Simulated assay, not measured.
Amino acid sequence: MKAGDEFATRLKAYEGRRAAVARAGRDPVNMPMIRHWCEAMGDTNPAYSGPDAIAPPTMLQAWTMSGLVGHTGRTHAYDDLLGLLDEAGFTSVVATDCEQEYLRPLRPGDEITFDSVIESISEKKTTKLGTGYFVTTRMDIRVGPDLVGTHRFRILKYAPIRRAGREQPSQPDRRQKPARPRPVVNRDNAGFWEGVEQHRLLIQRCTGCGTLRHPWLPGCNACGGPDWDTVEASGEGTVYSYVVMHHPPFPAFDPPYAVGLIELAEGVRMIGNVLGVPYDKVRIGLPVRLEFQEYEEELALPVWRVQEAEGMQGADT
Rank of each mutant, 00 (worst) to 15 (best):
G70Y: 11
P56G: 03
Y78Q: 13
M65W: 08
M59H: 02
D80Y: 02
D80R: 12
A53K: 04
R74H: 11
D79L: 13
T58Q: 11
G70K: 12
G50H: 06
R74G: 05
T58I: 13
D79Y: 02
L68P: 10
S66R: 06
G67T: 02
T75I: 10
H71N: 06
L84C: 10
M59G: 00
R74A: 15
Y78E: 14
G70C: 08
P56C: 02
A77G: 04
L82T: 09
R74Q: 15
R74D: 13
Q61P: 00
A53T: 09
W63K: 07
M65A: 09
P56Y: 01
I54N: 00
L60P: 02
L84M: 15
R74L: 15
D79S: 13
D80E: 15
M65K: 09
H76V: 07
T75D: 07
Q61W: 07
P51N: 03
T58H: 11
G73Y: 01
L82F: 14
W63G: 02
D79T: 12
S66E: 08
A77I: 01
T58R: 05
Q61E: 10
T72D: 15
T58K: 04
D79Q: 12
T64M: 15
G67Y: 03
P51M: 04
Y78C: 00
G83E: 04
H71F: 09
Y78T: 01
T64E: 13
L60W: 04
M59L: 01
L68C: 09
A62N: 13
A53W: 08
G50W: 07
W63Q: 04
D52Q: 13
M65T: 08
S66C: 07
L68M: 14
T58A: 14
A55H: 09
R74E: 15
I54G: 00
L81V: 05
L60C: 03
S66A: 14
D52G: 07
M65P: 00
G70Q: 10
T72L: 13
T58M: 15
Y78S: 03
V69P: 00
A77N: 15
T58N: 10
P56K: 00
L60D: 01
T58G: 01
G73M: 00
R74I: 04
I54S: 03
Y78I: 05
G83M: 04
P56I: 03
T72I: 09
T72S: 15
L82V: 13
S66P: 02
